[in-house]
Design a protein around this nucleic acid. Structure first.
Length: 649
DNA sequence: CGGACAAGCTGA
DNA sequence: CAGCTTGTCCGG
């Protein structure tokens, strides 16, 4: 037991000891993730230090930032013998709040993870001085005054309290939250507006937190809401404003960690979107964290999606619009059945060129053509003997690579071992190879020639604005354009047949995204009959295509639900992938856990990708069983990565 | 993470 | 045995 006060205080013997101001902090240093006790010096003159603030401390001789996790009156119980708490070096920034620190701790527990990634997610990029808050509050007061002047007649022209979308949202909010299946072209702004009304009816000063998948959507939605006279903080730029109390806070997944003084509800738009999942460990996903926050704050959570994944509708169907109405908001989807086509016609159905030419001629909007493969030729075969071009060293498929300088012969390049050789067949030695699978780069060249217009290429790597009327590329195209007359999927079977159990849901999501660009069936018919989504496929009767054409994903979901229940796949089980140096040790410890009484609650540990890979797939009946087992055996000294709901499956 | 320190290796 | 590398531990 120590008296840390002695190290900082010269209080005379016999006088009452001054209060010890100790704080518990977590340093912002990777690989530490431990709490340390520091003191606020007696002569400290900076701003009052609160839970969630960033302070600077001296840790093992280094000056580092650290989050304040708790204020402790008495540190005698916390410190081991002989350890003296050091004073903090100063205040750095306001960052989080008690609620967000609690949320981060709940997340770390849920994902059996370190705390630092979650604290980091909510911390603003730029330091916030305590004084900045009052300026933001002044701005908020102005915004509220402005809002009072908005009369009912000045509302968004589309807003009607009796609109089916508004009613649906209102009903779900009043029931305490839930899932809404909102078709691709139904007004999301109307839904948000309705939820905002609901929040403010319940508590006028409360804030609605709105999540969107991409940063681009933040500005668009925020602009609309401001036009409606709502005070609105767009994250991450307006972190301070969000903390000061506004009607709406909008942001991408990190907005879940925004300090909001009085949260009234959370809505996650396009809850199916993959960008809601952090690709870095601990791979947290926004709908899951949104649920943790909503439960802690006791506010409704509304998940909205045109294609509600099974994880959000395991046992019951989402709330939805009446079928005929929903159908009107779905795009026209047309399939080009390629089964009968001559295989030599390549990637393009005979009528495709004419379809694109018509859309370009009759519409100001651009045409988007999607092929989700980058590069030129992804799989090559000898024109004469049919042998696939493979690497002599590792046997992997070789791709075509352009050689620097024009006119030079192409080289074949092995993606896995980097070997190169001239473009010759390894078996018969002849130099004529043909492509079995064409990449987006090559498709852009070919389509440009077929249609006879300027063609732009967009992939995930494209940075510049692309102005061409015909855009060819990977699905990055769908996120780049705001509207299109025609969207073509050149090889949709690649998505439908992907060897992942989520492939069907992801394929439907692609059609929904494309459907937003071309608009709904109801608005299209008379004036823009060519606006549609065209899908080239050899599987025109695939249930994904049937569901999309019917504008009703519930039939697809019913099939998936039965299948996944049968196979005990999520959401009828919980999965995690353990990898890294000590994954084998983790697997051993999990295997040694005493099995619980009822057999079905057992945890399965299966080597993944071969025993030698040192990766293990963990399966339990539900997340809580999985996480609590992992919490029992995981410890700080184990070097491993845990990925819940792994994507690679 | 990165500094401190201990253990292990090398050359004179 | 100094001088160096490598490995392990720990931070308040």
């Amino acid at each position: 037991m120590i008296c840390a006060g002695r190290s900082v205080s010269n209080a005379p013997v016999g006088a009452p000891a001054p209060p010890i101001r100790a704080i518990s902090v977590l340093p912002d240093v990777t690989g530490i993730d431990r709490r340390f006790t520091y003191l606020i010096p007696e002569d400290y003159e900076g701003p009052a230090i609160e839970v969630g603030d960033l302070v600077r401390v001296n840790l093992a001789g280094r000056r580092v930032r650290a989050w304040v996790l708790a204020r402790e009156g008495d540190l005698s119980a916390e410190l081991p013998d002989g350890v003296l708490a050091k004073p903090i070096l100063g205040f750095v920034s306001r960052a989080l709040s008690q609620e967000i620190v609690d949320l981060a701790e709940a997340c770390a527990r849920y994902y059996v993870s370190r705390l630092r990634p979650f604290l980091g997610a909510g911390t603003p990029d730029r330091n916030v001085r305590p004084g900045d808050l009052s300026a933001a509050q002044a701005k908020r007061a102005a915004a509220i005054r402005a809002r009072r002047e908005v009369s009912a007649g000045e509302r968004h022209p589309g807003y009607r309290a009796g609109d089916p979308v508004a009613l649906l949202a209102r009903r779900l909010f009043d029931e305490g939250g839930g899932v809404i299946e909102l078709p691709p072209n139904a007004a999301r702004l109307l839904l948000v507006e309705s939820l905002l009304e609901a929040v403010m009816t319940r508590e006028p000063s409360a804030t609605l937190l709105v999540l969107v998948p991409e940063h681009r959507d933040v500005a668009i939605l925020a602009k609309h809401l401001v036009e409606l006279g709502r005070s609105c903080a767009a994250l991450p730029e307006e972190h301070v404003l969000a903390a000061s109390g506004v009607d709406v806070v909008i942001g991408t997944r990190t907005a879940l960690f925004a300090p909001i003084e009085h949260l009234g509800g959370i809505v996650v738009l396009d809850a199916h979107a993959e960008s809601y999942r952090d690709e870095r460990a601990p791979n947290w996903s926004a709908p899951t964290v949104a649920r943790l926050r909503a439960v802690a704050a006791r506010v409704p959570l509304i998940l909205v999606s045109p294609c509600v994944p099974l994880v959000f509708s395991r046992d019951s169907e989402p709330a939805k619009l009446e079928t005929a109405l929903a159908r009107a908001y779905w795009p026209v989807i047309e399939t080009l059945d390629r089964r009968g086509d001559d295989p030599r016609s390549g990637l393009y159905a005979t009528e495709l060129g004419e379809m694109i030419r018509e859309a370009l001629a009759r519409d100001d909007r651009r045409v988007a053509v999607i092929l989700n493969r980058t590069g030129r030729l992804r799989l090559l075969a000898c024109h004469f003997c049919g042998e696939i071009a493979r690497c002599e060293h590792c046997g992997g498929a070789m791709h075509q690579r352009e050689r620097a300088g024009s006119g030079a012969a192409n080289l074949l390049h092995c993606v896995s071992c980097n070997a190169e050789r001239p473009e010759l067949c390894a078996i018969c030695g002849r130099a004529r190879l043909r492509s079995l699978r064409v990449g987006a780069t090559r498709a852009a060249e070919e389509l440009g020639a077929i249609v006879g217009v300027e063609t732009g290429l967009v992939t995930g790597a494209t940075i510049d604005e692309v102005a061409a009327p015909l855009i060819v590329g990977t699905e990055a195209v769908l996120h780049r354009l705001r509207a299109a007359s025609l969207v073509v999927f050149l090889d949709f079977d690649q998505h439908l047949l992907a060897a992942r159990f989520g492939a069907a849901e992801e394929s439907l999501a692609l059609l929904c995204t494309a459907g937003r660009l071309v608009g709904g069936r109801a608005t299209r018919r008379a004036d823009h009959p060519w606006r549609r989504v065209v899908v080239q496929t050899r599987l025109p009767e695939h249930e994904v295509l049937l569901a999309a054409r019917a504008g009703d994903p519930s039939q697809l979901r019913a099939g998936e639900r039965a299948l996944r229940r049968e196979l005990s796949l999520p959401p009828f089980s919980a999965l995690a992938l353990a990898s890294g140096g000590d994954a084998t040790e983790l697997a051993r410890r999990l295997g040694a856990l005493p099995s619980s009484p009822s057999e079905h609650r057992r945890l399965e540990v299966v080597p993944f990708g071969g025993v030698a890979a040192g990766r293990y797939l963990l399966r339990a009946p539900d997340h809580e069983v999985l996480a609590s087992s992992l919490r029992l055996v995981h410890s700080r000294e184990l070097n491993l990565r845990l990925e819940f709901d792994p994507r690679a499956l």
